[in-house]
Each structure stands twice: as structure tokens, then as C-alpha cells.
Nucleic acid binder design. Structure first.
Lengths: 345, 345
DNA sequence: GTGAAAGCGCTAACAT
DNA sequence: ATGTTAGCGCTTTCAC
């Protein structure tokens, strides 16, 4: 081999990267046997397995996943789309899911849609180009083309964080409408008569909108006319302060407010402190998420705890079961939620 | 073709998935031309380009990235490792980086090390199996094996969020030591004489430890003996409250405290409220991160704003430049930070 | 239980 | 500017 040729090879594969053929040669077997030893160790004789493992170790062999994927028409990759990585709700779910799947040799490809169906569509297309083992989406609202592509690809799909009647394939989450209802009931039980819902970016965050709808529905059934404040900005602490200001301006006699997440609720709490509004004395507050500050602020925040990690874990479990051909459990898995009763409401 | 054979093909490639050869046939050209038209449109005649695009559209052709990757020995994949996805510092960086790279057809593979060098090592190995276009790591401390693997693979590497003297390849971040010094100077300028640093999980979060070291060094140079409280737990709001309690117990005359992040500082602030400690009257507080609540809490939080999004953007820019063979800029890029002066300190 | 041989769908010389 | 040809490194029948 000429030096130039060797240099070319080095550039292609990275300097010291060995192939399965190198392992086979060193172990004195065929590549088929190496391939089997690596993926189904039990069907290879113990002696050969030992020689192969040794060769793998000595050569520091790392399989080329693209070659494997091409040959087998599938990859150990799971494409995941969340609305935003920065949202700690989803990132905790993703972390749990990723850990569980990584244990079994699966890699996550993570993307964020920014709550846009169009971006979701593009992400799904680019995931499918990798022949993923599965695709995980957030929510149950997707474009027609997204649906068609997923169906055509015949790939396992999980919709998470929200439940629908007819999932594409599987769904793991809970009912946001029920969350809204539960919070309303809590307020009513405590004697509130002028409840309100304050949400941000509800046109994009459909799950938050549904929590609001559930809240209003429950109040209406109790004969109360709940107010609804929809803020255009992102659901951050600063928006919560504005939301409270608007609420107090538009309906000063409000006595209980459900904010679409804990960040908003915290902002509202700060604003109450600044204005001298007593919480829960003259205004009850409830958030959603049970973020870590909820238990610490003063007064501590009544909120709803979604099964963040549990969703990730169960999605992973269902997928692993599918991959291994065992029972993946129910197509629609409702994990429920907890109402965390603290001082603010 | 028999029905069974067709069924087998369907299973392999997904029901309607067409190959480049199908596109070539429909457009009446060779696959090489299709391949060129897709990757370097300018070197193909306008007429053929048009026919090919039409064929791609009609067949809803999605390239098989594994085949492409195998043939070209590289993939449009960037492996990224952060300590934790749930940490909004890193997730904002990842989001910015991902957007920029996605615009150019690159996908992120995201993993989290949980601040463990061992897990980082495993992740790097699994990324390299995908022939990634680049690998992005957090920080400058990596295991020997990680280093060797990256060097052997001859892949572009960026270390982010921290700067070292000899980066593996490129580094984009800022000096955490300087952050600590800047905060100490601020406290001293305001007349503090009994400063302290409170950090959590400093044995794992080496950047936080370095902020603490810088803080102590600056205080020492001014002839002051700064205290250091190291909490074992994760840097959350609840830990901040504990940190404040310990600080007040161990050194009651402390008049200024730098918490290793905003969550801790917020917890401390809440605890001060509960104990009736005046902030900044009897105790100055400073955080790190400038999270969204920092501007909203009462008193508002003096803190340090790291260039979260900017880091992601600049990492992406540097990599894209490398991919395209243009000037990637300096090997070590210091983006600095901002001291945000608010009420608490 | 193991090996030989035929691809997987694409890219990249090379030739025209 | 376009086509021909030979793989990329692995998996998977199919024989033995």
C-alpha cells in the first residue's frame, strides 16, 4: 500500500478506526460470526465469543452504525420532538427517556418545534431519513403531512404529555382538561366565587389552553362565570406580573386565579407582594408544574405536579417493549397528575 | 415481482419510500446527477435540476442518510454533551446552536453526562460510531480516553462554556474565575468586609467551583478572609435556603454572599424574607445566570449574565465555517459576561 | 454453529 | 456537465 493510499484511508475512517473485518481476522472467524457475537451473543459458541471480545478490545473496535443501519434498514435512534428544550417540563421527560433508552443502546435525536406544526413537519422528515427505531412527538395536534409521513414510514410513534382518542400509534400523558377542572374544584371548595384563569401564548400552547378550558367548564357547571386572561407573551415570570396587573384591572373582585404555569404564578406572587395583595387572604393562587421554587416561596405555591419523569420512563418502556416484541401495554396510557396543596391557594 | 417479495421490500424501506434510483429513472438521468443536484445544485444544468426537483416532489423522495453517510464517511450530525439538559443555561445554548445548525441541514445528537466523566466517555464513543461532523463538549475537563478517541477520530471538537489554555481543538466560552473576581470586586466596592461564597455540588460542577475560587482570590488580594460554604446537594432553590441557614450559623456577621447560581440565590432570598434579614441592608446577595425571575423578585437580584445563546450561536458558526472550509475564527473565543446590578447587592 | 456471498442506497473517482 | 463504475462496512439469507 502506498503512503498516499494509506493517508486517504486514514482520512476516510479516522486514523485508527478498525472495521469488523479486522476484528474477524484477528479472531480467526468470519464477519458474520463477529456480527452475530455482537448482537446475539447467545447463538455463538462461548469460545469464539471470547476470542471475538478480546479482538474487539484490542482493536478498540467501534461499530460503524451507518453501515449497520444501511444493511438492516433500521437504526438504534429515536427521534424526539418537544416544543422547547428550555422548558424544564419537557427536558426532565427527555432526560428520563434518554437514560432509559441509552441503557439499551438507543440514541436520542432531539429537536424542538417552537410550538410550530411546520417545524415539527420538517423535523419529522429529517428524522425519517435516519430510519429511526421510533419517533416521539409532544401533544396530539400534528399536520396532515406529518401524519402521512409517519404512517407511510410504518415506524412506532408515541405522542406524549397529552392524550387523544385516536393516537397515531401510542400515547402517554394525562388530561389537561382534568387538571383545569381539579384546580377549579379546589378553589370552589375553598369558597371562591370569582375565579379566573391566566394563560400565556395559549394560541400556541394548546395544552395550557386546554387546562384553561377545563377550569372554565368546571366553574360554569358550578354556576360561576370565570374570567380568562390570555397574554400574548411567553409564559415567564415577568408575564405573570403583567397577568396579575391585568386581572386586577379588569376584574378587581377576583378571589382565585389559576395561572397556566408556575413561572407565571411566581410572577403574580411577586406582584402581589409589591402591591400588598394578601395571598391567599384576598386572592388565592395556583400554578402548574411544581417547579422547585414552588415549595420554597412565601407563601408556598399550590400547584399541579405533572408526571414529568414518569412520562419519559413510560415512553421508553413502551418503545423498548415494541422493539423487543413484548407487550407494550395500552395504546393510551393515562398517568394522571397530583394537586399539590400548599399555602397560596 | 411476487406479492411476497413486494411485501418484503415494503417492510425494509417503509411502504412508499422511494430511492434515488427511482428519482433518477423518473427524471431520465443517472443517480450521480441526482446526487449532485441535491448537494451541489449549481454544478447541474438548470433544466436537469428542474426535472429532478419535480421527480423528487412527485415521489416525495427522502434521501437515506445512512447510505449517504456510509458512502461519504461523514454524516450531517453533531454530537453534543451537556452536564444536564434540565439546566436552562445549557438548554438555551443547545437550542440556539441547534437552530443555527439545522438551517444548514445538520442534526444534533444530544446527551447529558450528569457531570460524570465516565458517562461523557461513553457518550463520545457512541457519537463517534455515527461519524459525526463534529463533537461539542461542555467544559475543559475530560478523561484521557475521551481525549484519545476524539483525537484519533480526527473530528472537529468544540469545548464550550469554559476556556482552557490548550483546547482539544476549539473553545467558546468565558472565564468563570473572572466572574468570581468581578462579583467580589462589586461587593468590596459597596463596602462589604465579610464576604462569602455559597456553592452546591462543587465537586462535580467545576465551573461553579472556579467562580468560587475567583471570588475567594479577589477577596484575599484585598486582605479579606472570605468564607466558603459547599453544599452537597444539587443547586436548587431549596438548597439556597439551607445554604443561607448554614452561612448565618457559621458566620453570622457575613455581609455579602455570592451564590453559585440564581436558583440558590432565590432560595436564600426567600429564607431571608422568612427570617427578616434585610437584603441588601444587612446582607448583600448575588447570583449567577440571570434567569427570568432575577429581574422580578423583590428585591430584584444582582447577578451575572453568561452569554447563553451567544455561546450556542458562535459554536455553530465556528463549526459551519469548518465544514465549509472558511475561516472558523480564533481557536479560543472568550465571549465575556455581564454583571447585572440590581437591588439585592 | 459457522462461513460465503449478495446486497443495503448512496457518493466519488474517473471517464467522457 | 453528465454517466459509469466501484465500493463504503455492515447484515442477512442461504448453504453447509
Amino acid at each position: 500500500m502506498t503512503a498516499a493510499r494509506r493517508a486517504e484511508e486514514g482520512r476516510r475512517r479516522g486514523v485508527n478506526r478498525s472495521r469488523m473485518a479486522d476484528v474477524a481476522r484477528l479472531a480467526g472467524v468470519s464477519t458474520s460470526t463477529v456480527s452475530r457475537a455482537l448482537r446475539q451473543p447467545d447463538i455463538v459458541s462461548a469460545e469464539l465469543k471470547g476470542r471475538i471480545d478480546e479482538a474487539v478490545r484490542r482493536l478498540a473496535y467501534v461499530p460503524n452504525l451507518m453501515a449497520g443501519g444501511l444493511a438492516s434498514a433500521r437504526s438504534r435512534t429515536v427521534g424526539v420532538i418537544v416544543p422547547s428544550i428550555m422548558n424544564s417540563f419537557f427536558s426532565e421527560t427527555v432526560e428520563a427517556m434518554g437514560e432509559r433508552l441509552a441503557d439499551h443502546g438507543y440514541q436520542l435525536m432531539l429537536g424542538h418545534s417552537g410550538y410550530s406544526a411546520e417545524r415539527e413537519e420538517a423535523l419529522v422528515a429529517s428524522y425519517l431519513a435516519w430510519s429511526p427505531a421510533a419517533v416521539v412527538l409532544t401533544g396530539r395536534h400534528h399536520s396532515k403531512l406529518t401524519l402521512r409521513r409517519l404512517l407511510d414510514a410504518d415506524v412506532p410513534v408515541v405522542e406524549m404529555w397529552e392524550l387523544g382518542e385516536r393516537p397515531i400509534d401510542m400515547a402517554v400523558g394525562f388530561s389537561h382538561r382534568d387538571v383545569g377542572r381539579a384546580v377549579a374544584r379546589r378553589f370552589l371548595d375553598r369558597g371562591a366565587t370569582r375565579p379566573a384563569f391566566v394563560g400565556a401564548a395559549l394560541d400556541r400552547d394548546l395544552r395550557a389552553a386546554e387546562r384553561g378550558a377545563g377550569f372554565l367548564a368546571e366553574a360554569a357547571e358550578a354556576g360561576l362565570d370565570a374570567a380568562m386572561i390570555a397574554l400574548p407573551e411567553r409564559p415567564q415570570v415577568s408575564a405573570g406580573a403583567k397577568g396579575l396587573a391585568r386581572l386586577l384591572a379588569e376584574r378587581p373582585d377576583t378571589d382565585a386565579a389559576f395561572f397556566s404555569n408556575d413561572a407565571l404564578a411566581l410572577g403574580a406572587l411577586f406582584e402581589c407582594q409589591r402591591r400588598g395583595v394578601a395571598v391567599p387572604g384576598s386572592l388565592r393562587l395556583c400554578g402548574f408544574g411544581d417547579l422547585d421554587f414552588a415549595a420554597e416561596c412565601a407563601p408556598s405555591l399550590t400547584t399541579v405536579r405533572p408526571p414529568r419523569r414518569e412520562i419519559g420512563r413510560r415512553v421508553a418502556e413502551a418503545l423498548l417493549a415494541r422493539f423487543e416484541g413484548t407487550d407494550p401495554g395500552p395504546a393510551v396510557l393515562d398517568l394522571g397528575f397530583d394537586l399539590i396543596e400548599r399555602e397560596s391557594g
